[in-house]
Design a binder for these strands. Structure first.
Length: 385
DNA sequence: TATCCGTGGGT
DNA sequence: TACCCAAGGAT
């Protein structure tokens, strides 16, 4: 079947789309990002994973630190997961880091340490979906494969006037077909980079610079004055609120941390032990709350001493994609002569150096940093700043 | 198929 | 301020 027969819009642009994009990329695209100018599939793969749902400027420092610590896939595969998580901390979407680690191990164990060259095989690896597989294959091996990320969706929606939220399966199917029909026969790296560059620079979400665009005269959205409404935005809904009390348990100049389970929010990272209020009992009285806090803290820190004081710290609200989390930290100071070590593998006492090296989610890092600023006199905490 | 999964920047 | 959403994938 001829792929260009039915799925292409009746648009004269279709025949020259790739040529014009490649020419524009050579002249106006980006050529000096840290992960460009290499054919090393490891480096390309690492960048693509970090760039999933994450902007270029955010990724750059993480990418450099990561490569320095893990220069090749073998180094990453043999590293402890905790080291990987610590270098990823702050970047978000932590399942990416766990999948990255697993993927490296699979590449070493099952592919001789070399990334597969075809997109179908790449897409079977952990953390690599259809679009990421196409990007890796195109950049590293010149594969004839289409990407479909946020940039491409925005460009296609505007240039070809595609209505409807691109997150729905129907629109997404249309866009995959269109993206594949537009592929050139050669120059796949330049073409793929061009789609990303156009979407990230001229054809950005906010104010598209249509005057500089190679498709200016052919863009449906521009011709109809719909640059600002295409692509159709995601239907919004009210996000739920969650409340949680966290225990900042301090004893012997150390703080107790709890490793979060792999599944769920902040999976695999270190956080403070938490106390989720019973549903519908948000407004429990202060005394009973303190009683529960104290009991929980005493149970966790039993071998470190007895609860000496409980002091509320500055709370904060963290906004996630699908809910808002209200964090209420309590500083619990234990007193006692014990110098016992931490108990189980899920818990660990960190001093300031340990905190600095640990993989902490951003809001938890923020609370920890604020703690270090508390002087011993007014905070009853003797951690050095 | 819809939901879950972070964080930071832009408007 | 509040909202949108980024080089998406897994379940």
């Amino acid at each position: 079947m001829n792929e260009s027969s039915n799925d292409l819009p009746a648009n004269s642009l279709a025949g020259t789309f790739a040529e014009r994009l490649i020419a524009w990329q050579a002249e106006h695209g980006r050529h000096d990002l840290p992960w460009q100018n290499t054919r090393d599939a490891y480096r390309i793969w690492l960048s693509e994973i970090m760039l999933q749902q994450t902007q270029v400027a955010t990724v750059i420092p993480y990418y450099g630190r990561f490569l320095e610590r893990f220069p090749d896939v073998a180094a990453l595969a043999s590293a402890p997961q905790d080291d990987v998580m610590a270098l990823w901390a702050g970047l978000g979407y932590y399942s990416r880091a766990r999948n990255l680690h697993r993927c490296a191990q699979v590449v070493v164990a099952e592919h001789g340490g070399r990334f597969p060259s075809d997109p179908e095989t790449l897409a079977t690896l952990p953390g690599i979906g259809r679009s990421t597989a196409a990007a890796i294959a195109a950049f590293a091996y010149d594969a004839h494969a289409a990407i479909l990320d946020g940039n491409v969706k925005r460009v296609l929606a505007r240039v070809f006037g595609i209505e409807g939220f691109p997150g729905t399966p129907k629109i997404e199917r249309e866009m995959w077909a269109l993206a594949e029909s537009l592929l050139p026969k050669s120059d796949l790296p330049a073409y793929t980079q061009g789609m990303m560059d156009l979407g990230a620079t001229l054809c950005g979400r906010g104010k598209p610079r249509c005057g500089e665009c190679p498709f200016d005269s052919d863009c449906v959205a521009h011709a109809t004055g719909r640059e600002r409404v295409l692509p159709t935005s995601k239907p919004k809904k009210v996000q739920p609120e969650r409340y949680v009390d966290v225990l900042v348990i301090c004893a012997h100049e150390r703080i107790l941390f709890e490793r979060r389970p792999d599944s769920g929010i902040w999976g695999g990272l270190w956080s403070f032990p938490e106390l989720t209020p019973p549903a519908g009992e948000r407004e429990v009285d202060d005394a009973s709350l303190r009683e529960r806090l104290s009991a929980h803290a005493a149970a966790l820190g039993a071998r470190q001493g007895v609860v000496q004081s409980i002091v509320p710290l500055q709370g904060l609200t963290h906004v996630f994609t699908h809910f808002r989390l209200h964090l209420r930290p309590w500083l619990v100071t234990l007193s006692g002569a014990s110098a016992a070590r931490s108990g189980d593998l899920r818990h660990a006492w960190f001093d300031t150096a340990g905190i600095a090296a640990a993989g902490l989610p951003s809001p938890i890092r923020k609370i920890a940093d604020a703690l270090a600023a508390i002087s011993p006199d007014d905070g009853q905490l003797s951690l050095p700043a």
